[in-house]
Structures are given as C-alpha cells and as structure tokens.
Design a protein around this nucleic acid. Structure first.
Lengths: 164, 164
DNA sequence: AAGTTTGTTCAGTTTCAACTGTACGTTTAA
DNA sequence: TTAAACGTACAGTTGAAACTGAACAAACTT
C-alpha cells in the first residue's frame, strides 16, 4: 500500500473498524443502521452533534435523530453538555461488554418466560376441553406442548449461566 | 368458552402453539416464515408433503419448497420415504434443544472469531503506516481497536460456557 | 411413447422497514 | 419582538425481502 497520505490510511482504518464492529453489534439485535451509528460514536470518542453524525454517515439528520433516540432508550448512548455548544451532543457509554451482554441475556429471559407462560395457558385451555376430543390427537398435542414448555426451561437455564 | 366443537378447540390450540413457539425459534435467527414452517412440521409429528404444508399455512407451494430447503440446510428437517407415497415427505428432527443451541453458539463463535481477525488485520495496517500520522489520533484509534478486539474475546469466553 | 404428477426456476408483485425533505414548534441570539 | 438555528413529526419514496403463478424439467403411470 504505497504512497498513502495520513488521512487516507486513517480514514480507511476507521471505516474498516466501523464496518466490522458494526457486524458484531448487529448480533446483539441492533439494526445495521443503529449499529453503525453507535460504533461511529464509540470510535470517535468525542461527543458528536447530529450534523456531525449526519456527515460522517452520509445520512439525513432525521435518521440520526431517530437512531439516537433508540440508542438512548437502549441506554447505549448519553446526552452530554458542553458550555458554549448549542447543539445536542451525544456520546457512547463506557463499559460496553457488560452492558450489551446483560441486556441481551435479559431479552432472552424475558421472551422465554413470556412465551412459556403463553404455552402453559394454551395447555390449560386444551385440558379444559379435553372431554370432546379424540384421545390420540389430544395426547400427541399435549406431549408436544410439554416438550415446547421444557424447551423454554432449558433456554432459561442456559442463559442464566451467561450472566453470572 | 362454551359450545365449541372438537375441531374448533383443537385447531385453536394448535394455532396458538404454532404462533408462540415460532416466536421463540425466531430468536435463534430463523425468519418468521421459516420458524412457522418448522413448528407446523414439528407439532404435526407426522411427515408432511409440500401440498399439505401449503394448505396448513395458506402459502404457495413455491414458498414451501424454498422454505423446506433452508430448513434442510440447517439440518432441522429431514426427508423421509414411505412406500406407496410419491410426493416428497419431510419431518422435523428430534433433539430440538441441543441442535438449536449448539448451532446458535457456533454461529456466535464463528462470527466473533472472524471479526476479531478482521480487526487485527486492520490494526496491523494501522501500525505499518503509523509513521505518517499525528500521534494523538493514532493512539486513540489504536486503543479503540484493542478494546474492540478484547470485546470479541469476552464474547468467545461467554459463549463457550454455553455449549459445555 | 404419450400423458400425469410433482418439484423447482424465474420474473413479476407485494409488503415492510429504512430513509428523505418539508414543515412545524421550540429555543437561542440580536 | 423578530430572526435564525435546531430538533422532531409526518407523509412520501425507495429498496430489499417474501411471496406468487406460470412455465419448465424430471420422474412416474399407463
């Protein structure tokens, strides 16, 4: 890679890093745009304004505004004040990994719990009406329901290990 | 819920179960359609033909064909033969949980490893050219790269615990 | 060999989420 | 008080993915 000036190398490195790390954060259920926005903020280090993000990502300021709001809701970004600056400033939070991992695990546990309950209600409904149904079908379905409920128990156990 | 005949209760229970359990499997990175197709197959128990799936889900046979193929690739479904039946028959595999969990963990580990490597190459590129760059920016960026690489190490450690 | 039956390819459509620009309300500066 | 700067709501646009029907290819029946 001969004859590259400072800025070219620097911005290429930065671009690569943003792209790669965004892919990682997408796996924590961020959308590609949210991930890219967050990583840009994170890698920049300094607080940024909406206009700066807009220029850095070549997207509209509206997109930045909505993107930032979801990142705020997820507690991944915070608003900061700096005297003399009128525009809103945002910066990425520290402590990246514990934050991502625990909110991720929490989402799994919540979902597993909710859907397990839902299946248990379904099972109750089935048992209340079991008098009218042909026994073969009934028992097959009941067994499946039990297996699905058990599946959620295993999910819960596995992901509880992950948080510690 | 008075005055419901057999079929109404049975099919409502089945519908609920398919809907709820599909949501769970979507969390293992199945699309809604793939999840729904798999759960239908799973809850039915018996092998099904494309036409039967098509009717059960009220989708075209083409959709079933492509959906089944991805489920085959993911090793979630297998093709079975039954004498006297000309149509292709498919059924859901057993051992649901270990299969889902281990392929899920594997995906995480693969991705973490690949993206960690990618970041390390980026870091190398940066170091090779560091002579030309202003030191403050350089060191900030280097530190970020190290943090991101460390992030992937933590992911790997966490998800290796999950497989055991 | 001719005619069915069955699965898949492909081109067109539909659907849905991300994105944009304009318009508006609010805050700050003059 | 007016004028400018800033963030957000909203309606329209765009692009990608899911889905469909018709045409095709392969396998089976007679």
């Amino acid at each position: 890679m001969p004859n590259m000036d400072n800025n070219t190398v620097l911005s290429e490195v930065q671009y690569n890093a943003v792209t790669e790390f965004s892919k990682t954060l997408e796996m924590f259920s961020l959308t590609p745009s949210e991930a890219r926005l967050f990583v840009t903020l994170y890698i920049e280090g300094e607080p940024m304004t909406l206009d700066e993000m807009s220029e850095a990502l070549a997207k509209s300021k509206t997109s930045m505004s909505t993107g930032i709001r979801t990142l705020l809701d997820l507690n991944l970004v915070e608003r900061v004040w700096k005297k003399g600056v009128r525009k809103d400033l945002y910066q990425a939070n520290d402590d990246l990994f514990p934050k991502f991992m625990s909110s991720y695990v929490q989402r799994w546990l919540d979902a597993a719990c909710r859907q397990k309950q839902s299946l248990e209600e379904t099972k109750t409904l089935l048992e209340r009406e079991q008098g009218n149904i042909q026994p073969e079908h009934l028992n097959d379905l009941k067994q499946r329901l039990d297996e699905m409920i058990e599946f959620h128990c295993l999910i819960t156990k596995a992901f509880e290990k992950l948080d510690h």
